[in-house]
Simulated scan of single mutants.
Amino acid sequence: MIPALMPNYKRADLAFEQGEGVWLTAADGRRYLDFGAGIAVSSLGHAHPGLVHAIATQAAKVMHVSNLYRVPQAEALASLLVNNTFADSVLFCNSGAEANEGMVKLIRRAQFKLGHPERTRILCFDGAFHGRTLAMISATGNPAYQEGFGPVVEGFDHAPFNNTNTLRAAITPETAGIIVEPVQGESGIKPATQEFMQGLRAACDEHGLFLGFDEVQTGVGRTGKLFAHEWYGVKPDVISVAKGIGGGFPLGAVLATEELAQFLTPGTHGTTYGGNPLACAAGMAVLEEILKPGFLEHVRAVGEAFGALLDAVTKSAPDVFDSVRGIGLMRGLHCKVPVGEVMAAATEQGLLSVSAGDNVLRLVPPLIVTEDECREACDRLVRAADAICEAKLTTQEKVS
């Protein structure tokens, strides 16, 4: 008999009852070091006092009114984002896929209003992940996500990632804009190169296209800058944001320059829940914490130390890991054995992680993590690798 919850997820047999900082406590009382952070969502960790207080206080007042009325909390959060980014205006929504849909609509709408109705196609890149809606699985371009859902949504083209030689050939008279992840997350923690990012900006300027960055996973401090595009010195026209911005409460956003944002007028787009008082109270608490003096410096320092510690892990366990990827607190270990085995072994050692494509173990702890906690995570990874090697040796001995 089918369970009450649709069997859509392959869930580990773990249920957590409480969290504090970078730790989660399971129903059986065992504590786990959380280096998955709800897939890079719990930016301030678990039970952060400021975030808890903001949500509880707002919930006791008013949670939702809809966008038929002014939402002061949304106005305040939008102003904070505008004052600290390239953007002139912000649209709030509920998730990363929804933010990416909004970004695509905004790019197409702007081209239409600027006298280029033929420009409707969006150029994306091999290895991308932009979400699970019908349009976003088409933008992603991975056949595994598209199987069984009928014809792909028209209007998305793909080119090789990090290849400036093939970029211009992929642009057509119908291209409206380009969307790229500064660091591809789902496909294996693959950062864009400086040359590639600058090439994207140059191509967009040359052809009259809009440049959009999918910062759903890389944004809100994950890489050590508020947004990852800042590392490249490249200004986007629009970006999508979600995951860490709500610290665990569902919240997404589209940030854009006035050139695009001016065309999203009443009736052109909408969302019932997007930017409601409760979500934006959570977003304010998160963003105010991340913008405090020293917070992003902490992420950069710990992220650099974490990278060095992971390098040491690959040297300690060369039969299991062979390289480290990523930047800041968005890291990946490329595995020489199936990543599912590594993830399970790490969980046995009390370390939570996330798998990614290309046989990569993804490590995205809360941004409040300390260097000592990163060291502890690495110790557990080495123990997990040792357990994998010991199990394989035992199996070989039994066979022989």
Rank of each mutant, 00 (worst) to 15 (best):
D237F: 11
A192V: 00
T265G: 01
E288H: 07
L264Q: 14
F210I: 07
I178N: 04
R201V: 05
A261S: 11
E186R: 08
T172V: 10
E259G: 09
E154K: 13
A170D: 06
E289S: 09
T175M: 10
F249S: 11
G244I: 01
G270K: 10
N276W: 02
L287K: 01
V220S: 06
P182Y: 02
L260F: 04
H158T: 03
L260I: 05
H158R: 10
T172Y: 15
N162F: 05
E230G: 00
E259V: 12
N276C: 14
A169W: 08
P182N: 05
G247W: 11
G244P: 14
L226D: 00
E259C: 08
L251I: 09
R168Q: 13
S187V: 00
L211M: 01
R201P: 04
Q194I: 05
P173Y: 14
A176T: 06
V216W: 01
T271H: 08
V216T: 14
N165S: 14
N165Q: 12
K243H: 15
H269N: 11
K225H: 12
D205G: 13
G212D: 04
T265K: 12
A261R: 09
T257D: 14
T175G: 07
G185M: 08
L264C: 13
F227A: 02
C280F: 03
L167R: 08
R168E: 15
T257R: 15
L255T: 02
V241N: 06
I179P: 01
E181A: 12
L251D: 05
G208L: 15
V220N: 06
C204L: 08
L287T: 10
L278G: 04
I178M: 09
L264K: 12
T257A: 05
M197V: 13
A281I: 04
G283S: 06
V183P: 00
T218L: 02
S187M: 02
K225G: 00
H158S: 09
M197Y: 02
E289Q: 12
V241T: 13
A203H: 04
G270R: 10
M284Y: 06
F210V: 04
A159I: 09
E258R: 15
K190G: 00
